[in-house]
Design a protein around this nucleic acid. Structure first.
Lengths: 256, 256
DNA sequence: TCCTTGTCAAGAGCACCGCTCTCGCTTTAG
DNA sequence: CTAAAGCGAGAGCGGTGCTCTTGACAAGGA
């Protein structure tokens, strides 16, 4: 990490980070639209043109912030899921066998719920960064290829939880789930590669739930709930519980 | 409508509409962020300052466009739902009694699905206007009170479909639906006033589904599905079908 | 009929924006 | 040691939202 060979390299890396930090701070106070290179450079005590040595354009700075945001959210969600799964894994011999089996059955569901809660918590903590990545895309701006890998981290993490559940044998394929059509099977291919072993019907449902999870968070954050579900805590809890049921992550195995 | 008393009033109304139309066109091509008063005035052949006689600021123009967008979407959804409900109402004596009853049972579900499809269709047809109302909120801008009524049109329409279903006795309260907590009952109050007769458990689920529906549309429109559910038609159909089941709008009454 | 009153488009101007180019200076690499 | 590359500063271009002033014009009362 500190492998900046020359002093110039180190200075450059530091200043690049400093620019991103100040930009992120301005993002939090004024929003993405009002983020201005000139204001950032002013706050840093340098002239605006010097900033172009580090980011070729305003959009490139935004792209860097977008990638950072995806990564931060992904890390938060991964940590939350791993926390539950790891904890359940570390104490397998705590109680009698029966209780241990129950625990390992409940762990994936709890990990799923924890991941969903982490998405909401991170979004509420960094609303402008969330808006940057899950709000309307910037007009002329089209997300460069470099964003797709960080962007997929949350989805990959959620799929990982389901795969763990499938491996542990606690993923009950919902009985009323229709087998996906031919077209859908093709579209599910990427998901299948990420989480082999998860039934296609569940993968399809994961696709829906994935989008819908962010729908809930976005509605809360963007103010669509004011007047009704203003603190959306309970609505969110009810929703992600029903999601877990819908995916076959029920603690009551086989139900529904 | 054409009650513009003086010629001046009429000219003013016309020009106001013309400004909105031009702005909407620019919105469709360049996005909200790049919408510029100067460009609008240039296209209209007037000087930029003259535009401030009609809209006190850029944000006010945006507000007008937002309200128009909410109204257009609301009208499209209402039309789609009414089309199904009206059609089912007009031919009650087409077949034998048994068939007629089946039809009236299926109508609310079809109306629900039609409304959801109308949301998606309108969004795909007017992506920038959709982004304006369901994307990230403009930074410093907070939605004025005048937007909340148009904003609620879609939700009211969806609730209306459910109420019709409840009145027709084809809304099967899902058996595994938990009764809302005290807090939630309070939050559901506004929904209850809009759609009296719909069970609270269903109202709660409607709140979730409402947000989740727009989550699906947003993910598709904002490019989150590229690489997987690229034409999202089938995913969307599967999702809204599961929504209808979830709400108790099943054609298979009582199931699930 | 004239004259007041209010509305209008136009223009100049302010402060800000993204971005480009040139100019010296310093650090690096050969 | 020298040439090249990287660096910050400054000037400048065309664009933006917005304000203020000015003069033309139409409507309505005396």
């Amino acid at each position: 990490m500190n492998a900046g060979r020359t002093a110039r390299d180190r200075a450059r890396a530091e200043l690049t980070q400093e620019i991103k930090d100040t930009a992120r701070r301005q993002l939090a106070t004024d929003g993405a639209e009002r983020l201005s290179l000139r204001a950032v450079s002013r706050e840093l005590g340098m002239v605006s043109s010097a900033l172009y040595r580090y980011f070729p354009s305003r959009d490139d700075l935004l792209t860097a912030l977008i990638i950072d945001a995806y990564d931060a959210l992904g890390a938060a969600v991964e940590k939350a899921a791993a926390g539950v799964l790891g904890a359940a894994k570390e104490e397998p011999a705590a109680g009698p066998l029966d209780s241990a089996k129950e625990q390992s059955a409940a762990a994936p569901r709890e990990a799923w719920l924890a991941a969903c809660r982490a998405v909401r918590a991170w979004a509420r903590k960094h609303p402008h960064e969330y808006a940057l990545i899950y709000g309307s895309p910037v007009p002329g701006y089209s997300a460069p290829q470099s964003t797709v890998q960080p962007a997929s981290r949350v989805a990959v993490c959620l799929l990982g939880v389901l795969q763990r559940a499938a491996e542990a044998g606690v993923l009950a394929v919902p009985e009323d789930a229709a087998e996906p059509s031919e077209t859908l099977v093709g579209q599910l291919q990427p998901l299948e590669e990420i989480a082999p072993g998860v039934p296609r019907a569940v993968l399809l449902r994961t696709g829906m739930i994935w989008a819908q999870l962010f729908g809930l968070v976005s509605f809360e954050l963007f103010g669509q709930f004011v007047g009704t579900f203003d603190p959306a805590d309970e609505l969110f809890e009810a929703a992600i519980a029903s999601h877990a049921d819908f995916l076959g992550l029920g603690e009551r195995v086989g139900q529904r």
